[in-house]
Design a protein around this nucleic acid. Sequence first.
RNA 1: UCCGCAGUAGCUCAAUGGUAGAGCAUUCGGCUGUUAACCGAAGGGUUGUAGGUUCGAGUCCUACCUGCGGAGCCA
Length: 433
Amino acid sequence: MENSLSISDLPSHAGETVTLKGWLYHWRKGGKIWFLVLRDGSGYLQCVVSKADVPEAVWEAATGATQESTLEVTGLVKADARSPGGVELGVLDVKVLDLCHDWPITPKEHGVDFLMSQRHLWLRSSKQVAVLKVRSEVESAIHDFFHTRGYTRVDSPILTPAACEGTSSLFETQYTDDEKAYLSQSGQLYLEPAAAALGKVYCFGPTFRAEKSKTRRHLREFWMVEPEVAFLEIDGLLDLAEEFVKELTARVLDRRKEDLKRLERDAAKLEPVVSKKFPRISYRDAVEMLQKKSFPVKFGDDLGGDEETALTEGFDTPIMVTRYPASIKAFYMQPDPVDPDVALCLDMLAPEGYGEIIGGSQRIHDHDLLLSRIRQHDLPLEAFQWYLDVRKYGTFPHSGFGMGLERFVAWMCGVPHLRECIPYPRMLYRIYP
RNA sequence: UCCGCAGUAGCUCAAUGGUAGAGCAUUCGGCUGUUAACCGAAGGGUUGUAGGUUCGAGUCCUACCUGCGGAGCCA
């Protein structure tokens, strides 16, 4: 069915005459020789048009094309060291399939407001293309990671009857005439019963938080991958999270080198992630470390962005902070049997200021303890009856974590803001396009 | 929601309270190996909105609108 060549195929077609379709990305004029850069999503190709070598009509078409015009170009593939990418096209024919008028995004700088309002067009820019390729690679690596380890993917619902954690950040929608539904904030609660059915499960999909967050580290709609594993306890969970991040990073380094280069991301900064063990620090030790750096934190305080960055300073891998005070963590987290004030949980903090990429815990598996936690947190008991059933019928220790895809991709790409790591970001006060 | 910053040409930005400017983009011209090419020329403006102070406001004051950055919360 597909017969056409892509630009990325060309290095193995040197010496052949080929026809390609794509868009005019950029050009450099040189009097009687023009250099057109064609892009087709697979790569970029310098097409050399020489006035002496083509018919007048072809010269007119080539030099009359504007940025982002749709072109069909025929020419001879040549290896040439002067050309970015190693091969270039000696143009024989150019057809302008559509002449583009008033393309708004120029090669010079633009402000974020402008670019975000042109997001549907901004996607064509080389750096945005590179980020989307890294994102897709990570998504694919996530599925491979779990499938090679015997996990079953279980899709959790997006429309839910009640909150998983806190009702303040829920998106509400009308479900029937007299019933509301809420967009999912996490698939975890639905994954736990599935872990009893299938043992090792994971979900991967969009999640929604109606928080009024307006920072580079927040989106209102983001993608989260969440494994949940029967009979896995906290130490195994730490191993799983570390192995997971190592494998995804290795995959990006292995297969998306060109994209990292285009993003001017220093790949050497990611290499220790693959080779070195991630430090594991308890919350109590973290508080001490922060106090030595004269942060005014004490046991019971949550750690803010500045504290997280200070903790990761001096490390070239992520660090895992474990055993936070139970009082500041979710109701379902298992208390530490030797230190009941803390929960068996972890936050993985990425280096270079990228902050929390993973949060997870061992879950309470005792029915009565979970019941009392639901009551302590003033949660509507009837909404959690089915969740309690997991502990009522053949309970088992289990653990899981959630990783925010965009945060991971932002870190891989060295992009400072999450909004560039999802094709169409949903942010506070911005839902166009 | 709170705190801070900013709205001037299509875009990115200049302009002591005193004639509205540049680069890029666009159009035209020049250049046969360019790498955000370069050189020359032209067109392009109700300075976010509404008031106010002043002989005079892009500039100072007030309110509003829009956007950005950050906090809290989180992945």
